[in-house]
Design a protein around this nucleic acid. Structure first.
Lengths: 139, 139
DNA sequence: AAGAAATTTAGAACGATTCTAAAGACTGCG
DNA sequence: CGCAGTCTTTAGAATCGTTCTAAATTTCTT
């Protein structure tokens, strides 16, 4: 026993494998933190602090590696809202963001009810990739 | 003559003073580059390269200081589109951006014809500050 | 269990930005 | 005009977030 555990860590192993990533201990630990509860926003730093408080210590470099790999695999979405810091969002579906300016807090909101009309055509030779809407608010 | 020049550098001095900034040589030189022709997007690095090619050498630290001060004074708007690099936009009016993903090029488009409907209300205790729309496109 | 290949790690390296302390430039006052 | 006082500039060090390196470890295949 040990290699294929019972029910403790559900299908993170499978989830990672499906994404083409080896389910290493640290990737599983990070995936659990990221995906076991509802949607989350993290930075490399914040996730590192969080994972350190578990049994399994993971280096900061590994957190960066994992976040980038998860993003490349489509498990996470990177959100750029403030200079010098990257947020990663476990919600990869269509949605937009509130950004609370003083403290840097980020909140999702669904794009279902949002309609954007009148956008100009993409510049010649380019295809639309994604439309990001960031609603900046202050206290 | 000399203190109050004729027509060479129009009203950059006045413009800076009106913004509450002393019209120093380097700030005037930077303001001229930024504001004398149409709207522009610059990074600290690109503006530094540009100003170095004029008679007046300006240190990189001063370029950073000036960009931040101009932004705080409302003369520039900071645009965050890619991790690790800040763009400054001389267009401070209402408008949005195209961001061409591979090369990092940024283009304005007016918000006149753009309609955004169905945005949720700002979180409790916050006021709307600005809505940024970034249309990401690929080649 | 053994070997090959991928991953983790600590620490160095990096690029962008800010800070520091000292030197220099603008302004108001006489 | 000339000087004091305050603000600004500067070079270089420092900092921050992120990536890279090379060596040690783990995972996977057989």
């Amino acid at each position: 026993m040990g290699s294929t555990m019972p029910g403790a860590s559900p299908d993170f192993t499978a989830r990672l494998r499906a994404a083409g990533l080896r389910p290493t201990r640290q990737r599983v630990a990070l995936a659990r933190l990221l995906f076991e509860s509802g949607h989350r926003h993290v930075t490399a730093e914040s996730l590192h602090v969080e994972v350190k408080s578990t049994q399994m210590p993971v280096s900061l470099a590994t957190v960066y590696n994992a976040l980038n790999q998860f993003r490349d695999a489509g498990l996470l979405r990177e959100v750029v809202v403030a200079p010098g810091r990257s947020y990663f969002d476990t919600n990869t579906g269509h949605h937009h963001h509130f950004f609370v300016e003083p403290d840097g807090a980020l909140h999702d909101f669904p794009s279902d009810k949002v309609t954007i009309a009148g956008l100009p055509a993409p510049p010649k030779g380019t295809r639309l990739s994604r439309v990001d809407v960031i609603v900046r608010v202050r206290r």
